[in-house]
Design a protein around this nucleic acid. Structure first.
Lengths: 218, 218
DNA sequence: ACCTGAACACCGTTCAAGT
DNA sequence: ACCTGAACACCGTTCAAGT
């Protein structure tokens, strides 16, 4: 299952929480969350599994670290922009693109009950930008939360339905239980086989952003 | 960990996939997904773990069954309504309320790569209603998908942030890593400590539904 | 037809050594 | 200070019995 290619590189540098977390994210991206064990992660780092416990408290702590690493990517991709609508758009796109880049790690973001620091920095930065644009603070939090929920919901729906092959369209049937009647399978094909996922994502985003008036100068 | 109360009831009725799946969902609701094992599930049904394999193919198949059971609850709570906006609202609320009723099982819906039949029936029914209201079929699918994504995203955000104690507000800090600086902790408290989750959910829903024009009669 | 004892490889985690 | 061998309880799963 695990390739033996990793055994030559990265033996000189010793372990660190950072290196362990990044390797874990890499392994999850490659083989899926279920295939990640402390034993295998150790092996991928040229070390025995037990050694990891010198740098992470336990597996839960390790996975918290992975969630934080994903959030750091979101943060880096979600700059504040002069126009407040464009700023909210940048948050939404950062969330969606990052989740799509790590589809097999994405479920962790919701299953670990955690708000890591990079996530909180995204909130702080963009709330501040909305307030600077004239919104009341409470309203700014509400708007950000709404866009945030939509972006995560869309990204999750997409990765659930994407069967990893962007080209071939008809593999939606893989996610149906064998007995599924033909008429329902046809429904799934239209609903899940998104011809243009980007346009679909924009639809909801546009609806929400166009519905918002510019803040009244107070 | 497991209470011994279950050992008296339910011994006379023999096993069935249905009974196994329902008990699994119950155990997940009580103790969380990580605490569910085939051994423990067997014990909760007065049987050895291996006996379950006569009724479910493996654990993945069992969890697929749990996802399907949750979808059946969503389906039952999402009736078609005369007004198309009210119909979309009923889907959104059914998703949100059901996810909130099974917070510890919710992550399964996205992590199992599966569209079970009750989910497909919800799609078919509500697309048909939108088409009857005058929308083009492709447009109907797009709208439903948008509302769907928002509802799941909101529900997931809520259960991630809800620390199970609806009363006490300040337990948001449990989801912060110990080192988190005070200013970021304050951000988390406003962002996650939703004073009125229902109103927050309605905000995004209203934005989207108000932005939609009635379909032009063709 | 359905339940089970025994067994397998694998898992997370601890701890007393080793260097 | 950091790595490891040995060991623990637990896990998913198989299979040859038992009834």
């Amino acid at each position: 299952m695990t390739t033996a290619t990793a055994s030559r590189t990265g033996r000189r540098t010793s372990l660190s929480r950072e290196r362990i977390v990044q390797r874990a994210l890499g392994l999850i991206d490659e083989n899926g969350l279920d295939a990640l064990s402390m034993h295998k992660l150790g092996a991928a780092l040229d070390v025995k599994g037990m050694s990891l416990y010198h740098h992470v408290a336990n597996k839960r702590d390790l996975l918290d670290g992975v969630v934080e690493a994903v959030w750091e990517e979101i943060e880096a991709a979600a700059p504040v922009l002069p126009d407040w609508r464009a700023g909210l758009r940048s948050v939404a796109n950062a969330v969606r693109n990052t989740v799509r880049r790590h589809p097999r790690a994405a479920t962790l973001i919701f299953s670990q009950q955690l708000m890591p620091e990079p996530a909180l920095r995204v909130v702080r930065t963009h709330v501040a930008a909305l307030v600077a644009a004239g919104f009341a603070e409470q309203r700014a939090y509400d708007l950000l939360r709404t866009i945030w929920s939509y972006a995560f919901g869309s990204a999750f729906a997409e990765i659930t339905w994407d069967t990893a092959d962007p080209g071939c369209a008809v593999d939606v049937r893989q996610m149906l239980r064998p007995g599924t009647p033909e008429d329902l399978a046809a429904v799934a094909e239209v609903f899940c086989g998104q011809s243009d996922a980007d346009a679909q994502f924009e639809l909801g985003l546009d609806l929400m952003l166009r519905g918002l008036d510019d803040p009244t100068p107070d």
